[in-house]
Amino acid sequence: MSEHKHDQVRSRNEPFTERTATRIWCEQPSEDNPYIATQARCYGYDLFELMEKRSFVDVFYLLFRGELPTKAEAQLMQALMIGLINPGPRHPATRAAMNVGVGKTDPLHILPIASAVLGGDYMGGGAIEKTMRFLRKQQHTDPQDFARNVLLQQQSLNRVEVEEAIPGFGRRHGGIDLLTKNIAAQLLKLDAAGKALRWGSALAEQLETEGFGWQVTGLAAAVFADLGFHPRAGGSLFQLLGAPGLVAHGLELSNKPITAMPFVSDENYVIE
């Protein structure tokens, strides 16, 4: 019988804090019951004043950035939120939502299941942090030179390796994602469009000759970077912005029979 060696257990000598603290939210407790709040503030701003005087976009931005946006920043944020509100029925996350909806999964589970797919590396939040860091690093280089250097290597690199070299850009179903390209053009007209979005658009233009362009994750990452969001927050923000579309598609099919979705025929199953 073999012996298993275990590392010696040692105390880290790290004292735990006695109370959880947050800079984001402050609640005023009731005089009669300290567990019930009567008032709340988000980064010092009274919740009721925000409800009265500010938009949802403003408070969304405040919640993650710790400050209210300028008018131009709010306009860019709102435009992106609308552009990404629905990943579309071709997206794997939306297909997941539709499948669980028609499969009579509890409607409360549609979002967490589909959102997990939307958080993946393929066209999902898992690609956002890397892309934000890439855009922040490269936005001071010449996009034409960068594109030329990458495309010169195409003879020795496959599509996946090219897309690894330029995260946030590539092909979708063998071609350029035209919807994302058009959304980027719309966002580029706004006053708050910054260095990352402009650099990415210039790069996408250079890549078009080889059939590469913006991916939706690249566009989202560029706007998040220009609005000052931290790269680690980018993936979660991407999930949040696409959530309404996922739920809508799942609920649409939740009251329909399972035959409302196609069933793959036997001849399309291949066992190698």
Rank of each mutant, 00 (worst) to 15 (best):
V100D: 00
L68Q: 05
L253E: 01
R136Y: 04
A221F: 01
A222E: 04
L178I: 13
G213F: 01
F146S: 07
G170A: 06
K195S: 15
A37W: 06
G211N: 09
F134R: 03
Q39Y: 08
I183S: 03
E161H: 08
R90L: 14
K5Q: 13
M132S: 03
T20H: 15
P87V: 02
N99G: 09
E210A: 15
P244D: 07
R172N: 12
G83L: 07
G125C: 01
S236F: 14
A96L: 04
H4R: 13
G83H: 08
E52L: 10
A114C: 02
G124D: 01
G126K: 02
V59F: 03
I166R: 07
Q153E: 11
P92C: 04
M51I: 10
Q215I: 04
D226W: 06
N86H: 05
T20Q: 15
G228K: 03
F263A: 15
V9Q: 12
L187N: 02
G126C: 04
L187A: 03
E18I: 11
G194N: 07
H4I: 14
N182C: 12
R148I: 08
R10A: 11
E73C: 01
F56H: 07
K130A: 13
C42A: 11
L63T: 14
T259W: 08
F229S: 06
H249P: 00
L179W: 11
A233I: 09
S156V: 14
L227C: 06
E163L: 03
L227N: 04
A225Y: 03
I36P: 00
L179F: 15
A79V: 01
M132R: 02
Y45K: 03
R23N: 13
L84D: 06
Q186P: 00
S30K: 10
F169E: 02
T94G: 02
L251A: 06
A260Y: 08
A116K: 06
A196H: 05
P92E: 03
I183K: 09
A40V: 08
L135C: 02
E208D: 12
A147M: 04
A147N: 06
L251W: 06
A204L: 07
N158F: 08
G83Q: 05
F169N: 02
I176C: 06
K137L: 13
D145V: 13
K71V: 10
S236L: 13
E14S: 09
V270Q: 13
S55L: 02
S236M: 14
I24E: 14
G235I: 01
L80F: 06
K256M: 13
Q155W: 11
R23W: 09
V100F: 00
A192E: 08
F263T: 15
D226E: 09
Y122A: 11
E49D: 14
P15C: 12
A79S: 12
M77I: 01
